[in-house]
Structures are given as C-alpha cells and as structure tokens.
C-alpha cells in the first residue's frame, strides 16, 4: 500500500488484512479439533441406533466447526496472554496476522452456522449441546475461570469432554449413561493432562498471570493431585466393560492403559522438588495423549467388532 494510503487508513482506524485462509484455519485449533472429531465419532458409532451416513458426516463436520469456532473466540479473548507465552505467541492474533476483530467475527459466524446446521439437518438436542459447549468454553472457561481459579481446567474440561455426548445425541436424539461415561473419561483425563503441561511450562503461565495449579498451590500439591486424578481415571476407563457396554477385550486394554497412566503419574509424584528437566511430567503429558486416543480407539474397535460379530451370528 502506498505510504499516503497507509496514513489515511491509520487515521480512520482501518488496515488492509494480510491474513490468509491458513491463518483463519489456525484459529480453529486444528489439533484440538481432531481430538473432538475423533471422540464425537466414537460417540456416534457407540450409539445403538442408525443415522444416515451423510447426516453422520454433516454432524461430525458441524461439531468440528463448532469446536473450532470456540477456539477462535478463545484466541480472540486471550490474545493478550497468548502474546507473552512461548507456546502461544505464534498464534495468528498475537502474531498480528489476524486482527482481534476478524477473529471475533470469524468465531461468532462459525458458532451460529455450526449450531444451526446441526439443528436443522440433524436434531436440536445435539445442536443445543454444541451451543452449550461453545458458550461454556468461550465464556465460562476463557473469560471467567481461566484467569480466576486454579480449578480452571477442571471445570472448563467439561467443554472438551462433551463431544462424544453430542455425537451420541446426534444419532439417538437423547443422552444416556453410556455417553456420560465417555464424557467422564475425558473430564477426569483433562486435569492430569494439563497439569503435567503446567508443571514444565509454569514459568510461561506465571509470566501470563494465569493461576494454573503449580503456580498457585505449588508443584508438590499439583503432583499429588495429578496422582489422585490418575487413580480415579483408571477405574472409570474400565467402567464401560464393568457395566456391560463392551466386551472383555476393551476391559483388558483399558485396564492396561489405566495402569500405565497411574505408573506415569506415580513417576511424576516421585519427582524431586528441584528437578528442572521434569522428564516425568513431559512423559506423562505425552502418555496422556496416547491414553485418550488409545482408549477411545479401543472402544471404537470393540463396538465395530461386536456389531460385526452380532450381524454374522444373526
């Protein structure tokens, strides 16, 4: 742009955007979105009734876009703290590639579009749950809990745990105990996952002024709480088998995965106070990602194989 034009635009508070489609895609937090898509898909497959495959794809797409929209709203609101954290400084808004106004508009438009699409084409219960998830993540978690309490990711984790319930509701038009257990697995997985990250990124969070557990309650207390959550998560992961929703195959896999989680959490608990490398915390963070993917994959395989065997026997 010519220099004179630049000055004119600055005077009227306007600048030409240099954001590409890739920058807007980054606002959707694609890595988080992939986890949402996967867990929602498992919720859909686990449902005992059918949905047209095209409507299933549309439901997954709407859930993914809704989750992405809440990510964009999060990046709009959190641009100030993202800018001072090494992990998030390169995001489109703090890096200056997308303006806050663009991120806000993008998030709001996609929120409305995803909820309306799910409601009109699939059903309104799943649309309502998606709307609640977006609201919970963008308003309750991002605007309120995140900067206020060290329990931020405990309560806020509910938003990330709902996708399998939405997937189930998209197919059945209802919510059942089975889908609530899938919710519980993600809900209980969230604190040890994020607190492991917060342990080795505590300087980052402190610089941004976010009251994460290690910065507020101290590292020793955080390590104890991580271990406590691991002890609760492991049996809850086995619940689908214990309640008769899956075969023993899932039961064995989930039990092994749960024991692994407890083992990694134990290593974090036993970590020395002056351990600066924090390898056990990094190992738990990595394992927790594997755990969630593997336990939902096991659930998916169990559903598909069980159904195939049932069809073969019929």
């Amino acid at each position: 742009m010519a220099l004179a034009d630049d000055r004119l635009m600055e005077e009227v508070g306007f600048r030409m955007s240099e954001a590409t489609a890739g920058d807007f895609f980054a606002l959707l937090k694609p890595r988080v979105m992939s986890l949402v898509v996967f867990t929602a898909f498992v919720g859909m497959v686990a449902a005992p009734v059918a949905i047209n495959p095209l409507l299933a794809v549309i439901a997954i797409l709407a859930i993914a876009i809704g989750a992405g929209a809440s990510g964009a709203l999060n990046m709009w609101y959190d641009a100030d703290i993202d800018a001072v954290m090494t992990r998030t400084a390169g995001r489109p808004v703090p890096a200056g590639r997308v303006t806050p106004g663009e991120a806000l508009s993008f998030g709001l438009v996609l929120s409305v579009l995803s909820v309306m699409t799910l409601g009109v084409l699939v059903n309104w219960l799943s649309a309502g749950l998606l709307a609640f998830t977006i609201f919970f993540y963008a308003v309750i978690y991002t605007m309120w809990l995140k900067r206020w309490t060290p329990q931020n990711i405990v309560i806020g984790g509910a938003a990330g745990a709902i996708p399998p319930v939405i997937g189930w509701a998209a197919v059945t038009g209802s919510v059942s105990l089975e889908s609530v257990i899938l919710f519980l697995i993600i809900f209980l997985w969230t604190p040890p996952h994020f607190w492991a990250l917060a342990l080795f990124k505590s300087d980052d969070y402190a610089r941004a002024g976010i009251p994460m557990m290690p910065n507020v309650a101290g590292q020793a207390s955080t390590r104890r709480q991580i271990f406590a959550y691991a002890l609760i998560l492991a049996p809850v992961g086995v619940l689908p088998w214990a309640l008769g929703y899956t075969t023993a195959g899932y039961g064995v896999v989930s039990a092994i995965l749960g024991l692994g989680f407890v083992w990694y959490a134990w290593k974090v608990l036993a970590m020395a106070d002056d351990d600066r490398a924090m390898k056990p915390a990094k190992a738990l963070f990595g394992y927790s990602l594997l755990y969630l993917f593997a336990i939902f994959a096991a659930y998916l395989v169990d559903c598909v194989v069980g159904r195939a065997l049932m069809m073969g026997g019929a």
Partner: peptide, 26 residues
C-alpha cells in the same frame, strides 16, 4: 451439504431412521 442433506431427509426419511448401528450396522 444442504442440498444433499435435504434429499436424504425428505427422500429417504424413513430409511434414515430405521436399522441399528451407525452406517446400518447390527
């Protein structure tokens, strides 16, 4: 998406609500 979903919902409304399991599984 809206065109195809409209065809599915109004063209095969009954079929989309019957059966059990995602993608018509048991």
């Amino acid at each position: 998406v809206f065109y195809a979903a409209t065809i599915v919902r109004f063209g095969h409304h009954g079929a989309s609500l019957t059966g059990s399991g995602l993608f018509g599984g048991g």
